[in-house]
């Protein structure tokens, strides 16, 4: 195909495959650390330190190292894809998905340098690997130049903002699910001290950070992602004014972006109000995340509209 550097496009695909592989190994590493950690057990059970034995903590550190390696491969894959077609590497759904995953991993790695959040590893990397798997198979589109309507510098502004916000919402969604798990375990454990349930669920719940901390972390990430999403919608509207002659036209993609925005706005209001904090706010945040997924998958593949650039199925 003209306008495509075939060897670079191939390199990008190979790098993509290695990215998924390395991420998958990292994911197993985080899961192993999570599963074999002794946090939940009593001190008496703690085994005698053995020099030759690998501790779960070491596995966790290796997993972080692998995540960094995978991240570098991931960046390489995205850059070569862009170079192969001589344009920004987010012109179709496959490219958009890998960018969202890249942002999610970046957000996780940045959080990791500031807060002890390695426990999140398994919960971030699992959706990322699944997501990339989906991108590499179902959504995959070969390298090709952009459609003329996408040929605008607004693709850099609007789509980067959308990708960044989506990555942030994805991480906050994971944290919110952990928050709900933790509160559920806490409720189960609080039936009565000393009961079998209290021991079992209490032990499980100690594997996760406190509900309060998870709640605050999720809020912080949404506090970052929501203004970026707002900006993405506005930048999209400005672009639409140039491309489609109106800044807003209730196109399905526009409408679902708006619905997502409203859902997260409801979350922020709920959280600002004492009576709605905690579980109810968490549910609202997950509703927002589901709207984002509909906006992203259902609208692109099922509902036809002006944003039909998916490149899926031809």
């Amino acid at each position: 195909m003209p306008g495509v550097n075939v060897s670079l496009a191939h390199a990008s695909d190979v790098l993509f495959m290695w990215t998924v592989l390395v991420y998958a190994v990292a994911m197993f590493g985080y899961s192993a650390e999570f599963a074999f950690s002794r946090i939940g057990r009593s001190r008496a059970e703690k085994p005698v330190p053995d020099e030759r034995r690998v501790t779960p903590e070491q596995i966790g550190r290796v997993a972080v190292g692998l995540t960094v390696v995978g991240w570098l491969l991931h960046v390489g894959s995205v850059v070569t894809r862009g170079a192969a077609v001589n344009r920004v590497p987010w012109g179709n759904m496959y490219e958009f998905s890998t960018m969202v995953a890249l942002v999610a991993v970046t957000v996780f790695l940045v959080l990791l340098t500031r807060q002890p959040v390695r426990f999140l590893g398994a919960f971030v990397m699992t959706p990322v690997v699944l997501y990339l798997g989906l991108a590499g198979t179902v959504l995959y589109a070969p390298a090709a130049p952009l459609q003329p309507i996408l040929n605008s510098y607004w693709i850099k502004i609007h789509v980067v903002a959308a990708i960044t916000a989506s990555g942030g919402f994805m991480v906050s969604g994971v944290i919110t699910m952990l928050y709900l798990t933790r509160t559920w375990l806490d409720r189960r454990a609080s039936v009565g001290p000393g009961t079998a349930a209290a021991v079992e669920y209490g032990g499980l719940s100690r594997w996760l950070p406190s509900a309060e901390r998870l709640d605050r972390l999720a809020y912080k990430v949404i506090g970052f992602a929501f203004p970026v999403w707002t900006f993405a919608i506005i930048a999209g509207a400005i672009w639409a004014k140039y491309a489609w002659s109106r800044y807003w036209g209730w196109d399905p993609k526009e409408t679902w972006s708006f619905i997502t925005w409203v859902a997260y706005a409801a979350y922020l209001h709920a959280r600002a109000t004492a009576g709605w904090r905690g579980r109810r706010a968490a549910v609202l945040s997950l509703i927002g995340f589901s709207c984002l997924m509909v906006d992203y998958y259902v609208v692109n593949t099922v509902i036809s509209g002006l944003h039909s650039y998916a490149g899926v199925g031809g």
Partner: peptide
């Protein structure tokens, strides 16, 4: 306000 926001969505 929350109710109306949800209703709008």
């Amino acid at each position: 306000a929350l109710l109306l926001l949800s209703l709008l969505a």
